[in-house]
Design a protein around this nucleic acid. Structure first.
Lengths: 180, 180
DNA sequence: GTCTATATACAGATAGAC
DNA sequence: GTCTATCTGTATATAGAC
């Protein structure tokens, strides 16, 4: 746990990339092995089953998310704005990890969807002190979910009608006004 | 087209149910045939391929959505509220059709995700006259997306922390205040 | 129109050599 | 630790009988 072998991380990176780009269907053991530059047998030495591979990716995502959350708690100024801004995925390691796990969840992995729920709850806890009441909290969370959904998920590999920088700023201003 | 054979509709209904309940992975040709009470050969007489089956379901969803939209245009009072309320899926034929097509989109069908985009654009057009500006429009659309996402999709078969009736009413009031 | 039987392809997983 | 070869299950699709 403390010093994960390099090959393991390389496999997880490849799996994550395949999930982000091609979805759960494209992220097969075979494709992952090829993308990571190992053989199928080699992959199965590190991860004994597809379930084990998925679990490892989920755990890594949760770890990154927790670290990100700690940073957010340490710097509590403008939390709502930076939370919304962070919901529009830009390709950070956390973004990629979340998108990959979300694709797993869409494919039917319950461990993946459970972990996403848990992370969402942690965000909720962190935001609660910075909004007026529970209704305001729900509004912020839902806007974030909506951005995340449109930007990175389901409805398209084709990224929807993307907000301009100005439009996003205006949206954040409106949400902050409605919520504080 | 004008009088679709009964067997065809029965197959589409079965396919839709399997998608809603078990996702794209569970909705195989075999399972669909069984659920519809026909054989695989019988199914393939009506739909020559899985692609054809998916396309037919998508077309049916778009037709239902258009009809729903017309009803919304005809009754323009409280459009924003009823749009948001309609985003929390309750099992109407339109809800089921949308969820089924969304599962297809998650499974990688680009015709499915394209159709969802198109329907979302139609909703946007319908709502635009009833909100203050583009930013307000985005807020409404994103809250709707967020509700829809949490309620019916991806993050869980497990329906998330569900809003009570009172919480939903409060949310709608807040959105309407922010938007008009 | 609807059926059975079968062809083809690819997924995940195992066995055992090196 | 990493490889090749192979087994098993399952999904789509075809062929052709009734």
């Amino acid at each position: 746990m403390s010093r994960p072998p390099l090959a393991r991380e390389k496999v997880l990176d490849a799996f994550e990339s395949l999930l982000c780009d091609g979805g759960a269907r494209a992220a097969t053991m075979d494709a992952t092995a090829r993308a990571a530059g190992v053989s199928k047998g080699g992959l199965l030495y590190h991860f004994a089953s597809k379930d084990a591979l998925e679990s490892a990716l989920v755990e890594r995502m949760v770890a990154i998310a927790r670290a990100d959350l700690e940073a957010m708690r340490a710097e509590p100024a403008g939390v709502v704005a930076s939370f919304i801004r962070g919901s529009i995925m830009t390709g950070t390691p956390l973004d990629r990890a979340i998108v990959a796990v979300a694709k797993l969840a869409q494919g039917g992995s319950s461990i993946a969807s459970d972990s996403l729920h848990r992370v969402r709850d942690l965000w909720e806890e962190t935001l609660r002190p910075h909004v007026r009441d529970e209704t305001a909290l729900q509004l912020v969370m839902l806007v974030s979910d909506g951005l995340y959904f449109n930007n990175a998920l389901a409805i398209g590999t084709v990224p929807g009608p993307d907000l301009t920088r100005e439009a996003l700023d205006a949206l954040i201003a409106l949400v902050e006004a409605s919520v504080r």
